[in-house]
Design a protein around this nucleic acid. Structure first.
Lengths: 151, 151
DNA sequence: CGCGCTCCTGACGAAAGCAGTCGAGAAGGT
DNA sequence: ACCTTCTCGACTGCTTTCGTCAGGAGCGCG
């Protein structure tokens, strides 16, 4: 239930790309803007490229840009590109685990957890993120003061 | 964004305990009922004990039982006892991370994610789990066919 | 063509976390 | 006494995380 540095970096770099309308952006500029170790970031950008989220050109005037409009790329897309499936129990997808005894209904709980994660991550796009115009449901969740409590 | 074996085991063992009304249950019986390595399970039960979720007595007729009624223990309580905070970004709580540039609003997204995790885990009790009478909101989430899709 | 720029890729490495196992001890019951 | 069961720290092997390094490969320009 934690967001890795890699996933965090990937989303931040993608957000930075989403905010630029013209031409390719160098890896170095992204690294500086978001304070991410450059060489690590390039590995991440490469994975985003393989996933078809980002494109790149080398050479002078080269750099990275989004393969699709920022409105069509969700945070879930970015995270899946670098981390694989979003919610696993013991490295297996929740729907494939089999419980016995009194824990039978636990599978439904994990499914519900995943559904609720997706509800946020699949509906927030990079465009939402850069403009601050998050989906209403997300805004509502983040607006509640006790969502900010530590526990 | 994954549930560790430890957390999974802890919840399953707690569910098993919740289903027993009388007297202490041996670790061995819990391990068999849920197919969990015994010695690993005892470590987990010890942590649950330190967190005040479970009590134990040693010797013949000894074993473990819930410290409070099953209706008052949530899945979130159990997970926190063995894993610490439920949602972290880079090992720090989401409300304490500071983003710059175009990623400023990302913190709200993480907060919303955590809130949605809590919405499931803090409202499902061990009693709900053993009886299968999950909270309505959780049932609704798990009922949607595409919550079961892999992606 | 050559040269600099930038991405591309694999290899490597330290540190931490995960999933247990082992063995000795302490408390409880009979 | 003696057996049972929890308690607890140490240890192990494996994988994941979070990077760094070095070299190549493609692109554009003079």
């Amino acid at each position: 239930m934690r967001v890795s540095a890699k996933a965090d970096y990937a989303v931040r770099a993608a957000a930075e790309l989403a905010a630029v309308e013209d031409g390719p952006v160098k890896g170095e500029r992204l690294a500086e803007a978001q304070d991410i170790p450059l060489q690590f970031l390039e590995h991440i950008l490469l994975e985003l490229k393989h996933a078809g989220i980002v494109r790149a050109r080398r050479g002078a005037k080269g750099g990275y840009w989004l393969a699709r409009p920022a409105e069509e790329i969700t945070i879930a897309d970015v995270i899946r590109a670098v981390e694989g499936p979003i919610a696993n129990v013991q490295s297996a997808p929740p729907e494939s685990v089999h419980y016995r005894g009194k824990a039978e209904h636990l599978v439904e709980v994990w499914i519900a957890v995943r559904a609720n994660l997706r509800a946020v991550l699949e509906h927030t796009t990079l465009a939402d993120l850069t403009t601050g115009k998050l989906p209403k449901a997300v805004k509502r969740l983040a607006a509640s003061p006790d969502a900010w409590e530590h526990r």
